[in-house]
Design a protein around this nucleic acid. Structure first.
Lengths: 332, 332
DNA sequence: TTTTGATTTGCAACCGGTTGCAATGCTTTA
DNA sequence: TAAAGCATTGCAACCGGTTGCAAATCAAAA
């Protein structure tokens, strides 16, 4: 029933090697042989077995794509980009959902069993140790949206979250907001910590401190809404930097509901420029990351790792940009 | 460098078969041998090579997951469910993005090359022919969110879109909206056609016809917003059924912006109950599909197909439910 | 102690490809 | 026409597992 290379060889009247070679880029086959083989293959409906090839070449073309964030709509774009870009290079994403169980041990084992050629860990909330676990198992890893580390042990592609925090503080100050608050994502996420750090450092240079620091429990509207209520109960803030747009939208809704006039009484800025932020009901000013560039660069890096797995760990950081909408005052 | 089963066998002082058997569910090995093998494997850091196993058993545990909708946030939940459910059964999702190129031919070829055990086609917008293409290539297929077909050639798990359309019409009529409009998703999507059909049929039983039928070009807020403007320019409608929540939110925003009072002057209902619909800014009444049940059932079906690939094509339909929020009047 | 039957084990072939190497065929140059 | 050089081909071993079959082991029954 299943057609193998031997069947094609017999039908074409050539050796198995000849068939194999016509399916191998740059192998030595004459045009005559090649066309005989192609003809026979067509007639029999032959499809080469990549599993068998992988066994022989110890290259699977499989890339582990590890994700734990199936809640933030921003990740759809990430997933879209990765699947497309990998497909274009003839690589196949083997998707791993790390939501249930943030301990990577099982996933490491599984991806090793499948002999994936490399792993992309795409998450800003997983601890750096997670990506490192894949590396220790001998798998080439790229950690996308991971933490910037001046002496990295793992390849990182993403943004400088600390700088992003600084940028937010500068933008708010430039618009003459005085009493600034930070409404972050989950406290343990390194991206949250880094953004807060940058935010605080920049305030310090102006002899200021954040008036309030609050964390949302998840990356969700409800969490942002709740955290904003908590913040407003305790402190008076006139400029707010939110750790993610989805949180920012919850916060914005809570503020408006409480009768706060945005952007005059309070400026609110988000992070990530997700689609919903542009909706008429919100028009949230935000900072955008160049998602497509980041993913593209990550896939390029994976490509180079396939050639040279031992390449020393590299960090690739991309700049963020302010997207002006209507929840911040204009510049003076 | 790489540890194989032969290395383990030598170290444990047993045959290769013995090692293989200790890693095979239900194979005949004595406890003594098994523990010798386990010990040796641990010491050497052995990980069985699933690629090699796949070649021998012609079972890869790989499931092709074909998706073309990386724009609708509702699909994140679908993806989350599938990855989790497959993982729980020790199956691995090989993700295929069909967005660029809706012609399935290449993907069919690729999934055949990897000898995936089955394929899940998850889309309400791909034509039925797409799922059928996988079937013709000899791959077991489950089409999730596909079209109901009384004599199906492919397994379908999803909802009865025609009935959903009827349901929408009944709900609007019961709330004494008189002049009903349909704002569908892309016209060529079978789900749109089926919902319109059900909607129209039910109106007919009340001697009515849709006052307006308009299609959004994509499943997006902007497309919904635009389509709603177009609709309002031409027709006067007081009850509107939208083909998807994301479209519905665009339409709702357009209506409110035009000064229409929702739900008194106009009732608007969406479809899919996505997260954003519950946000305070919208509170869109909508119809929800039981996503988790659908995905669960689809994965169960895949499980049975692995046992018996020739199982005759089956359709599994789940009921939808109205989610009352505030864009529809109450019952009289 | 011998026989019987069930369990456990190892041998060797196989899954479907790839690839180094030596042999063959062909063209080019002297 | 013979020798040299290159491209093409086939052989056979290998990738890392699984599995049918027969032999070996073991415990229980006679």
């Amino acid at each position: 029933m299943i057609i193998t290379l031997a069947d094609v060889a017999k039908r074409a009247g050539v050796s198995r090697s000849a068939v194999s070679r016509t399916y191998t880029e740059g192998a030595s086959v004459s045009d005559k042989t090649r066309s005989k083989v192609m003809k026979a293959a067509k007639e029999l409906g032959y499809t080469p077995n990549i599993i068998a090839r992988s066994l022989a070449t110890s290259r699977t073309q499989l890339i582990g794509l590890v994700i734990n964030n199936f809640h933030n709509p921003a990740f759809l774009e990430v997933l879209d980009q990765f699947t497309r870009l990998l497909q274009n290079r003839n690589l196949r994403p083997l998707l791993v959902n790390l939501s249930d169980n943030p301990d990577p041990a099982d996933s490491v084992e599984m991806l090793r069993q499948y002999r994936v050629d490399a792993v992309i860990v795409a998450s800003s909330t997983l601890p750096p140790a997670c990506a490192a676990a894949f590396k220790q198992a001998g798998l080439p890893v790229v950690n996308v949206f991971g933490r910037y580390n001046p002496s990295p042990d793992v390849h990182v592609v993403g943004i400088d979250n600390r700088h992003a925090g600084s940028m937010a503080a500068e933008i708010l100050l430039a618009r003459r907001y005085k009493s600034l608050g930070f409404l972050g994502g989950p406290e343990k996420a390194t991206s949250t910590q880094d953004r807060l750090r940058g935010f605080t450092d920049t305030l310090k240079t102006a002899n200021l401190k954040p008036t309030a620091v609050v964390y949302a429990e998840h990356y969700s509207y409800d969490a942002g809404y709740k955290a904003m209520h908590k913040l407003m109960r305790n402190k008076r803030v006139d400029g707010l930097f939110c750790g993610d747009d989805v949180i920012g939208l919850g916060a914005l809704s809570a503020a408006r509901e409480a009768g706060v006039c945005v952007p005059d009484e309070m400026g609110i800025m988000g992070f990530n420029n997700m689609e919903m932020s542009a909706w008429h009901a919100f028009e949230l000013s935000t900072i955008s990351q160049p998602i497509a560039d980041i993913c593209g660069s990550a896939v390029d890096l994976v490509g180079s790792l396939l050639e040279n797995p031992e390449r020393s760990a590299e960090t690739r950081l991309f700049p963020c940009a302010l997207v002006e909408r209507s929840t911040l005052r204009g510049m003076p």
